[in-house]
Design a protein around this nucleic acid. Structure first.
Lengths: 161, 161
DNA sequence: CACAATTAAATTGTGCGCAATTTAAATCTG
DNA sequence: CAGATTTAAATTGCGCACAATTTAATTGTG
């Protein structure tokens, strides 16, 4: 049992509790969102649209939520067939697809009023502790997002340099 | 714009950065684990088996990783056909399936030596900050895991009482 | 203006994650 | 020890995530 073994121990790693906590949170949301006919990522899309109160492109939704079109396109189609959003090509740039709330999608905001409160209770932590943890996680997201960006043409790639 | 609106703001919630950070971490692992022919949850199974150094039932793996048989059974079958583990019924209790490392699965531990280090670098944070965050996330996992447990027969269920 | 390069979504294919159900083995009753 | 109950995995079905590719529109360049 050496230091190398320690590094491979589950309890000593940060990534596993992050992964497990995320799964547990999504599971907790399930029970709360199912009565609204929503999944957690669908709820996230609505949070963005409710806050912006203007149509958002698939790309800007993806940038905000760190998701790509491979995830968002089928998800948005399901939300569209559920009557929550409308999808239409942007007349200014026909490559873009704009996602807009329907009246039904807007109305769902009132029904989601208790969702944050319910999740807060599930955490069972003080508001201060939650805010502190949130800030640290936002920092992690910022740090890991940087390496997200694909290499620029000018950069020397893995084979170059 | 009232307090209710604030609660629904993405930037003010803890769950979203938790979700985004988890996705980003899994994405970061992908590049590191792909050369080893592993996915992140498969790597987690190996961490448990390497640490225990004895065959584990599907149930105990699931308890440790907060995953159920619906997730683990197909994952373990893929690992078995990749030659990393063997699956066999427990002779003491034919309901159980024991998952044991093969020589190949054990040998992979050496090749995974650099994985924790690589992830540590990706976080770009001090060891102290990472440990502090890890402890907080383990606390979240403990808190959310409690509600995980199904009701005991003695408990008054939603319809009873 | 032609046409190559870039950009935005959609599509394809694989692997989770999980609720709900099914199958089969062990245990608990009488 | 027979039949009901409980337990452990497997199965089924659905919705993400995401890499890789494709399709189509826009932009850049000569």
């Amino acid at each position: 049992m050496d230091e190398f073994d320690d590094l491979l121990k589950l309890d000593l790693q940060i990534c596993f509790p992050l992964y497990a906590a995320s799964n547990l949170v999504t599971r907790t949301y399930r029970g709360v969102l199912e009565p609204l006919g929503l999944t957690y990522p669908q709820y996230l899309v609505l949070l963005v649209l409710w806050e912006a109160d203007s149509p958002q492109s698939v790309g800007s939704l993806g940038e905000r939520l760190h998701l790509d079109s491979g995830t968002l396109t089928p998800l948005l189609k399901r939300m569209e067939s559920a009557g929550l959003v409308r999808r239409s090509r942007d007349p200014k740039d026909e490559r873009r697809v704009l996602v807009a709330l329907t009246d039904e999608g807007r109305a769902l905001k009132a029904k989601a009023a208790r969702v944050p409160e319910t999740l807060f209770d599930a955490f069972g932590m003080s508001a201060e502790d939650i805010e502190a943890l949130r800030d640290q996680l936002q920092d992690v997201v910022r740090r890991l997002s940087k390496r997200d960006v694909p290499a620029k043409p000018g950069d020397s790639g893995p084979k170059a340099g």
